[in-house]
Amino acid sequence: MKLLAAMSGGVDSAVAAALAVEAGHDVTGVHLALSEAPATLRSGSRGCCSREDARDASRAADVIGIPYYVWDLAAEFQASVIDDFVAEYAAGRTPNPCVRCNEKVKFAAVLDRALQLGFDAVVTGHHARVVDGVLSRSADPAKDQSYVLAVLTPAQLAATVLPLGPHTKDEVRTLARARGLAVADKPDSHDICFIADGDTAGFLRSRLGEQPGAVVEDGVAVGTHQGTYGYTVGQRRGLGLTVPAADGRPRYVLSVEPVSRTVTVGPVAALDVSTVLTDPPVWSSPRPLPLACTVQLRAHGMVHECVATADGAGWSLALTTPARAVAAGQMAVLYDGDTVVGSATIRSAA
């Protein structure tokens, strides 16, 4: 096949491209320029977007021996990922920007352009498997990224090649070393790539301004805040409470309500939910409802057994055992064993 390999400059995408070549495919590498003003050097644990990362990607392509280009997707990334991230927080939800990037940029803008230019599919270094268009978990449970790919439609999955699925991260590094790829020991990335210093609250404050309001417990004001966007369901630190809790136990954010600028806090037990309602889902491997399956409610989170039923156009998920701190805006991803069934954005939980 003619494949387009998205190369971030990290070890995973470099090895994925190399494995695709070794499998006999005709591979072309592209680095996605996602920032209007890229930093010269990588900082912190961000995995992309600096010129140093672009150089790492081009070096890997040269070593593998494939053509390499840079595609400017900064405008798409700004509109679909960064602006969406800010808008979601402003609306009191907790978005996952990697999901959005996969949904709107890597497997939409890039895939569309690749298909138009005559490529058959896109190769990425995600830790997950696609076999015959069916998405499932990576061989490395600790690195599994099926959660952030669960938003892909069957049509997108049909044009997706994930060579790293059978490999653990350690194996990937070994494969990189064996191929002389200098990125073999490059640190893993885990911060939000467009927030250079990792200060999400500061990033949001600079875009949304200060929006002071009350922190409330049982209808009683117990503190103030400078913007609901600084709070996520389940958060314990930085609540700035001025009234100590009656039971002397820690307080957690239970809900975030941006219109009334109210952050509601309470004891840990109040974080437990057993019903999750979602927006309309994307079925990656369609099943009839009701469906007994498992659900993952955040990236790298634990799975819960549940029964999914229709709730309007969305799902209602009845959890067998309660889940703690479920934030609206995150994805609920249904699994049948290791196979991804589908995904939907969490609307509310109780």
Binding site: T28, H31, A33, P38, R51, A54, S58, P67, Y69, V70, W71, D72, R113, Q116, L117, G118
Partner: peptide, 27 residues
């Protein structure tokens, strides 16, 4: 322009889009 360049390159015809910044992004 950069799609044209990629496709011509794949056919052994080497051209330029005119200006590229140091990160290789065609502006």
């Amino acid at each position: 322009g950069d799609s044209l360049l990629l496709l011509l390159d794949a056919r052994g015809v080497e051209v330029s889009t005119g200006s590229a910044c140091s990160s290789g992004v065609a502006r």
